[in-house]
Write a protein that binds this DNA or RNA. Structure first.
Length: 569
RNA sequence: CGGGGUGUAGCUCAGUUUGGUAGAGCACUGCCUUCGGGAGGCAGGGGCCGCAGGUUCAAAUCCUGCCACCCCGACCA
């Protein structure tokens, strides 16, 4: 491709509303343009990258035996009413009406459509297992789209759905998909990690997320280097400490803490570290009353764990200050488990381990110190309620956990029978009996992979594409192309490179060298060849990788072989 | 949805306080000089100042309403 036929539309200035580096660079490089909140046009340069990712995904899905389909983006409400999600999904579902005032939605996902397809097409266990996938535009009406295509409303997703007679079949396909995803992300050239994950509102039992590792990632991962354990911090268990609880050493005492509300303030005031405090969080209980969740002062409540506790109402709802004052007669900052009337207590394992601890006195302006379980108040019911932290022991006993940031680019689920039951997806088994099938589903955020790749691979000059997804492999820059000998040599080399199957962007503009170098660096092409009058005299050209500081002189006659030995696709 | 902010050239922004001929840099077009890391000069093109009302001799500027976008929070198969 010639730059004179491929408008680059790069900019030097960073658009004001782009916050993260991938968004900034995608705009500056001329990959995408915003049309409206969360809606982006992919320009030719950006689309090339998107299609590189798509190609890898498609090849690996095909290799794994999945079958590509293409389902409608717009879906009739009836299917969603059948699964129950028309009511449950909420405002993130874009609902639309046609001219007959029939209800439709723009698909945020396709479980309903695929399950409907399956029940119409597949009759017999002998046709199982089957795995259908598509690469489709989805729409989710996010309350706050941001970060460019990282969290857009409309985005490109690969979604796959598998159907099985039994759990063993599902399990096998699930493992096959995990391996396929691993191969896909290895092929993109990104550093990633597969982590245990929550199944969320989609239901199901087992799931893994594929995370591209990047400091700007919105998700936190708990990982143990020694054992290879990795999980979303939402999910990573914090088991009870192994050491026994220390014996009480202090007497219970009430102390004045006027105006002190937060743990930090009280800790500072009393000179007792936050780790020896127990904080009391009141949430709505499953039966309607209030439930007190007790955590060590330096620990953080894990909302997901809390709302899974049978005594706690889901979704987790913190009791408001007014309600607490009305029912318990003290402000939130003075709550404590001692003598708390009519409220069930659930203590995190670490909080239950505390001795001689500090807590609120249930009286404004006072705290208790030297508090001990079993002596000053009954032994509590315990549960895992906190979010793990760096340094916590790995749940598999493998050593300390580290916390890393990641961008979720893929998610695999064992869905089970949620949709097949609701929608009557059955096959006849060997005995001629009708059996409800069990399902898996497997997603990859294709457009998000592009943004994640940039988050992970950039420098002050621009993007540094991993070669497998780069828009071009080789940048060919002619310096002084207005000189006939340069133009001639450049044209000849361009033709030769194209003929050898390399994907080349030939900068044949009559621009200053600095402009061309800056553009090629910004758009991140992995290999660069420069043809100049100077080099031509030596019968050489210059070669440089995007990440190199210095160029190498290579004999003109050897450059194609040289490149062939250094490119990877 | 709550709180805060911004809408002026393709982009980044001045100008609004105190009403009086709509600006700069980048980008774009032409010419000249320059030519190995985003050059310089000269000359140009490009604006319903978000939209609709209102006040005024006169509105980018003041008033009212609406719309769009951004940030923080809540939310988030």
């Amino acid at each position: 491709m010639r730059v004179t036929r491929f408008p680059l539309s790069t900019t030097r200035e960073t658009p004001a509303d782009a916050e993260i580096v991938s968004h900034q660079l995608m705009l500056r490089a001329g990959m995408i343009r915003r049309l409206s909140a969360g809606l982006y046009t992919w320009l030719p340069l950006g689309l090339r990258v998107l299609q590189r990712v798509e190609r890898i995904v498609r090849e690996e899905m095909d290799r794994a035996g999945a079958l590509e389909v293409l389902m409608p983006a717009v879906q009739p409400a009836e299917l969603w009413q059948e699964s129950g999600r028309w009511e449950k999904y909420g405002p993130e579902l874009l609902r639309i009406q046609d001219r007959h005032e029939r209800d439709f939605c723009f698909g945020p996902t396709h479980e309903e459509v695929i399950t409907d397809l399956f029940r119409r097409e597949i009759r017999s266990y002998r046709q199982l297992p089957v795995n259908y996938y598509q690469i489709q535009t989805k729409f989710r009406d996010e309350t706050r789209p941001r970060f460019g295509v990282m969290r857009a409303r409309e985005f490109l997703m690969k979604d796959a759905y598998s159907f099985h007679l039994d759990d063993a079949g599902l399990e096998a396909e699930y493992q096959a998909m995990r391996e396929t995803y691993t191969r896909i992300f290895e092929r993109t050239g990104l550093a990633f990690s597969a982590v245990e994950a929550d199944t969320g509102a989609i239901g199901g039992s087992v799931s893994h997320e594929f995370m591209v590792l990047a400091d700007s990632g919105e998700d936190a991962i708990a990982a143990c280097e020694a054992s290879g354990y990795a999980a979303n911090v939402e999910l990573a268990p914090a088991p009870p400490p192994e050491q026994p609880r220390p014996a009480p050493g202090e007497a219970l005492q009430e102390v004045a803490t006027p105006g002190q509300r937060t743990i930090a303030e009280v800790a500072d005031h009393l000179g007792i570290p936050a780790s020896r405090h127990v904080k009391t969080l009141l949430v709505e209980g499953a039966e309607g009353g209030l439930v007190a969740l007790l955590l060590r002062g330096d620990h953080e409540l894990n909302e997901l764990k809390a709302e899974k506790h049978p005594a706690v109402a889901a979704p987790l709802t913190l009791a408001g200050a007014e309600r607490v004052e009305a029912e318990l007669g003290c402000p939130l900052g003075s709550l404590g488990p001692v003598g708390l009337q009519g409220v069930a207590l659930i203590a995190d394992h670490a909080a239950a381990q505390a001795a001689d601890f500090v807590c609120g006195a249930n009286r404004e302006g006072y705290h208790l110190i030297g508090v001990n379980w079993g002596r000053d108040l009954p032994e509590p019911e315990t549960a895992d309620l906190r979010t793990v932290e760096a340094g916590d022991p790995s749940p598999d006993g493998g050593g300390p956990l580290a916390i890393r940031r990641g961008i979720e680019v893929g998610h695999v689920f064992q869905l089970g029978k949620t949709y097949s039951e609701a929608m009557g997806a059955t096959v006849l088994d060997e005995a001629g009996q009708e059996r409800t099938v069990t399902m898996g589903c497997y997603g990859i955020g294709v457009s998000r992979v592009v943004a994640a790749a940039i988050e992970q691979n950039h420098d002050e000059r621009g993007i540094r594409w991993p070669e497998p997804i780069a828009p071009f492999q080789v940048a060919l820059v002619a310096i002084k192309p207005e000189q006939p000998d340069v133009a001639e040599a450049a044209e000849a080399l361009y033709a030769e490179l194209m003929a050898s199957g390399l994907d080349v962007l030939y900068d044949d503009r009559e621009a200053r060298p600095g402009v061309k170098f800056a553009d090629m660096d910004l758009i991140g092409i992995p290999h660069r060849i420069v043809i100049s009058p100077r080099a031509l005299q030596q019968d050489t050209v210059e070669y440089k990788r995007r990440e190199d500081a210095e160029a190498t002189a290579v004999d003109r006659s050897e450059i194609v072989t040289w490149l062939k030995n250094r490119t990877t696709r």
